[in-house]
Amino acid sequence: MSDENDTMTDGGTVPDFLVDTPASSRPNVSRMERATRFVDRYFLTQARIAWTDWRTRFGIIVLGLFVFTGTVGVHLVPEPGINEAETYMTWFQSWKYPLGTDNMGQPIHKQLVHSTPAVLKMGLAGAIFAAGVAVVVGTVAGYRGGFTDYVLMLVSDILMVIPGLPLIVVLAAIWQPRDPFTVGVILAIDSWPGLARTIRSQVLTLREEEYVEASRSMGVSIPSILQKDIVPQLMPYVLINSAQAARGVIFASVALYFLGFLPYTEMNWGVMMNEAYSTGGALSNPQRAAHWLYPPMLALVLLSFSLVLLSQGLDRVFNPRLRARHSKTVDDDGAEVMNR
């Protein structure tokens, strides 16, 4: 499905990448070209297909806005300063501070912008970690079968059963992570087993395909078969489930920060909610601090709604089984992982 797009990006000099030619007979391709081709094959092609569904379009646009806020927006909006304005201004009191201020006079909207990067970093780290581990475990278990499969699936079954949050809390207590990327990885520690199982069941059908059997009978090594024949077929599943994993990690991290379970140096939505709750007393005294608690919550809901729509849309576009059977059905297994 990606061949025509390959010609578009690098001028059509590409040999068929799926054929396992020996390194000597391949034309020299620079590292840059190879990276472009990788990105194109694994992500851009999928994105072009995905764009056809309104859900994915909505998800991508909203997600893009968040990424924009987290990368460019941080430079556009200056950091909030202490005593910049009156304390505890509610929303829509002045044009300069549309969302009001907190107990130290810091404008809420600036805090909101500056706590976005940490949330996105955690989600990204979690998604990459969960997807990476799941792909390796799922493909190896599904393809090798036998004892390897048994052991790997036993491990993921065990991890699936162990309640995630208590384990994460214990690990966080011991390691005291502060870096958003580390936090993301720790929080994703229990979100890969579900995806690994989904991928494994996909691989179980893929491994019987004729072209895979051809590679096998030609004596292609298992890593190459997995890398070139199997993983590209799984990319939609991986994308769908990474969106879910990112959502799970962001859910859990904001909750843990909100309750003050994790130490922090960088602002994020959970920390804002925690301060609004504990310092501002937002729940028992909503006139004073509700405007401080709700914006980060709203941002969280919006971000997770866009991730859910994105993964549902991707599912609809990429899952031919669903598309063929019924245009309105929703997947019954796998795609929708735990809602911690």
């Binding site: 959502r247 909750a255 997770s304 709604f305 809602n339």
Partner: peptide
């Protein structure tokens, strides 16, 4: 779908 995306 919306309820599914609201954290509990």
């Amino acid at each position: 779908t919306f309820l599914n995306s609201v954290p509990y």
